[in-house]
Design a protein around this nucleic acid. Sequence first.
RNA 1: CGGGAUGUAGCGUAGCCCGGUAUCGCGCCACAUUUGGGAUGUGGAGGCCGCAGGUUCGAAUCCUGCCAUCCCGACCA
Length: 490
Amino acid sequence: MSKGVISKDEDYSQWFNDLIIKSDLAEYSPVRGCMIIKPYGYSIWEKIQAVLDKMFKETGHSNAYFPLLIPKSFFSKEASHVEGFAKECAVVTHYRLKNDGSGNIVVDEDAKLEEELIIRPTSETIIWNTYRGWIQSYRDLPILVNQWANVMRWEMRTRLFLRTSEFLWQEGHTAHATADEAIAETEQMLNVYADFAENWMALPVVKGRKTPNERFAGALDTYCIEALMQDGKALQAGTSHFLGQNFAKAFDVKFTNKENVQDFVWATSWGVSTRLIGALIMAHSDDAGLVLPPKLAPIQVVIVPIYKHDEELENITTFVNALTKELRSKDITVKFDKRDTHRPGAKFAEYELKGVPLRVAIGSRDMQNGTVELARRDTKTKETVNQEGLAAHIEALLEEIQTNIYAKAATFREENTTEVDTYDEFKRMLDEQPGFLSAHWDGTAETEQKIKDETKATIRCIPLNNKQEEGKCILTGKPSTQRVLFARAY
RNA sequence: CGGGAUGUAGCGUAGCCCGGUAUCGCGCCACAUUUGGGAUGUGGAGGCCGCAGGUUCGAAUCCUGCCAUCCCGACCA
């Protein structure tokens, strides 16, 4: 176990917090629920951004930026939307501070805003208010816009990366001439998210749809990707919403179609957030620290020299410089840590904590033998290999690590996904072996709510391409045509 | 917003019951010896004891109020 990090079996929540703090991803800020994302943590976000941004552009989207502050009145235009967000909005009421004469800085009551401003919890309202001016004809459609931004939701209870008051995300907001086109867009972006989660984050996900209860405020249909964490709880890793014409109607966004008939515009929105970093941590890491998939690791390979004299270091450095150059030509991110202020053992522990996928150690012994020592973070195994062909070997190994991390997570999910047919078994599994529970449900909100109240488990999603089969609801015994996925969730 | 806990050096802590300006470890600085899994020795620096009142000759310690954070619930990406 790493110093200062509690074992994840002993206290999972504490383990998660310890890891984030000790591995330098983030720290607490002076403001409740807000965190400071430190350079190492932010560099993971930058990688996530770079990959997703490319995927968005390849699917025809462009980036834009809408303001942080939204007039309060905008929120009253879409009924279910305001209901969903009203309780967690931060409100700007004044625009000036003053000195009260005794050295205290206070709000200047004379500087009260005519209309209060809301710090965006999400941008549907300001964006649809804007789209009204952009759209007149079917020729103006579709609009395929994404924005990278911060948002604020004043949550009751916060957790680093999983649920902070302010978080970073991207939100796509598209406008279409037909429902079919909007639904296709919603599904397309869900697939982009699933592709990203599985192939970059090494995180297996279930694609599905939310039940009406769990839908986004203002959506007709919410698609999601659900992942399973190591403590058996589910995490919603991304969502894509079909908003129908709700926002177009609320903000009066109409267009003239080819038949010269006016109609309301069809909408989607979709987003993922810095929560993905939380998912990354909880899905793969262990008691020694983070385990980052090579494709998203800020440092993919760290090289640690072991030497007694400067002359030996020079020797090693010459070799390392050549190796580094070769690795960089393969787009592999390398760090050569030749600090003489820390001994090798300390460095080993540090990079394990930080989840660097591959470590190369080179000492004088290796230089004489023409070898290096390679240590994998995912398996914690070490091997001594020849310096000849090393770059190619490392490249292959990184791919193997990526595959292995995914396979491990997939196996875990498989072992913790259970089909249950009775309510007793359902409750017993939640206590004894938490995970995904695939069970029949009668399709009513009442049943869903009752199960939630009694067990804290919610319907995570109705998986897409779900197998249709006859069954009986685990709670009511009423007939059902398919299983849905339950779990306790973050 | 309910329940629980905690605030003492950068971090982790002792001291609090029984009032007398603070303990230990890690880290930090200097020098030396070290370097294949978290080095060792010697010397040193670092504190308005969360904040504000009160009691007292004297408060980290007793009293009152406040603030903040974390954990568990309800709410949520």
